[in-house]
Design a protein around this nucleic acid. Structure first.
Lengths: 217, 217
DNA sequence: GATTGTATATTTGTATACAAACGCTTGTAT
DNA sequence: ATACAAGCGTTTGTATACAAATATACAATC
């Protein structure tokens, strides 16, 4: 099958279609320039056009596809310059998120962050890349959360998908894990002692390195 | 009437409904916490639920409303902290946009920018606030354009609506016009001589002041 | 009196039917 | 042969009908 029904079955059909298409674009199953026809997708997935339309609308607002009126939607292209720009923007925003997180983090959030870092130490020792990637994502999400800024969370979540697509061909480099751990630890420690400026600088350095060799998410 | 049919009649119905609701939220016609019921809006506007759904979906993705499953969508609240955060984020991104604009601007775009600044001089002398506000918006949009970054344009356009809503009660201060002109001129000059760092700094200063007393858009 | 179960109303989620717009092909006239 | 127009097929845009989910009100039972 096409994997559609293997999705978790929580969420509405629109949600499922959305995830199916979004992942399809990120994984390259839908290529740049491909035309996404509502009817075809609906038939393939065994649903009606309505949830497909909603999914396409969402993709359009996330800038992953562009809709030509009465002509269909096509998968947008991402130049390497686009990717570069997204990295820079993420650099700016992640730094600011860390800054705010240091100022606004709650004890509960700090505890969660600490746990993530400790797990990172554990899996780094075992060189377990799969878990480390998941923990990295979790670490960053916790910081967005701790920043207390709805807007920054919103923007970074939206950028996430662009990054995924842009990154489909550039592979993860595993060797960076130990360095990555040290960086995460520095960020955590700065936040723990409420040192906003340092937290920001450490995060900027971390994102800059990650952007350079495409490791963390 | 409710003003819906006074909209320009280009664009689809969904577009028109979207603009109607978005402006309604920005202008306070829909208050924080209000429930937006598809059927009611559809009846009020004399359209079916389908375009209303699309409009609500878009508003949700712009973070202006939140949708509770099977309960309806409600207009989100904006705390003063949210507004503060949006200003900071805008500060960062506008600075970066100016930086890139200085590096990437085309002669054609430079000419347009110059024309806008000259018009600003003209209307500042006449103290014509209405035209100045429009020109200010135009100036910033041209810089987004010149930055060549699709992503930054996308994010800033989206923030624009949040800012509009958050700002509904804080009025425009007219006295700043002469200072504002000088700031725009400095930014333009830095871009003209391709001085990216200065363009960025000037823009950041400009946005910071504007955020402080709510003048420019 | 409090709690729980059921019926009902409200609202969203999805499917389908129909209309309008656009591109493309084909046919005809010059 | 080429230019232009008419017709057809494809695809989106919109309306409507129906199904599913949830809250609410009310009654029954403990």
């Amino acid at each position: 099958m096409n994997g559609f029904y293997e999705n978790k079955d929580y969420g509405s059909l629109s949600e499922k279609v959305y995830r199916f298409l979004r992942d399809g674009i990120a994984e390259g199953r839908y290529q740049t320039g491909d035309c996404l026809i509502e009817m075809k997708i609906a038939e393939e997935l065994g649903v009606s056009r309505t949830p497909v339309r909603e999914a396409l609308k969402q993709l359009e607002l996330e800038d992953l596809v562009s809709s030509h009126p009465n002509r269909g939607v096509v998968v947008k292209s991402f130049t390497s310059e686009d990717l570069q720009d997204v990295s820079t923007i993420r650099h700016l925003l992640e730094g600011q998120a860390a800054f705010w997180a240091a100022q606004r983090v709650t004890d509960e959030q700090l505890k969660e962050l600490r746990e993530v870092v400790e797990l990172m130490e554990f899996y780094t020792a075992k060189n377990d890349i799969v878990h480390l990637v998941a923990l990295d994502t979790r670490f960053h999400e916790l910081i967005y959360e701790a920043s207390g800024s709805r807007t920054i969370r919103h923007i970074l979540a939206s950028l996430h998908h662009n990054i995924r697509k842009a990154r489909q061909s550039s592979l993860t480099l595993p060797d960076r894990a130990p360095n990555s751990l040290a960086e995460h630890l520095s960020i955590y420690q700065a936040i723990e002692r409420r040192d906003a400026q340092t937290a920001k600088e450490q995060m900027e350095a971390h994102v800059a390195v990650a952007a350079g060799n495409r490791m963390s998410d």
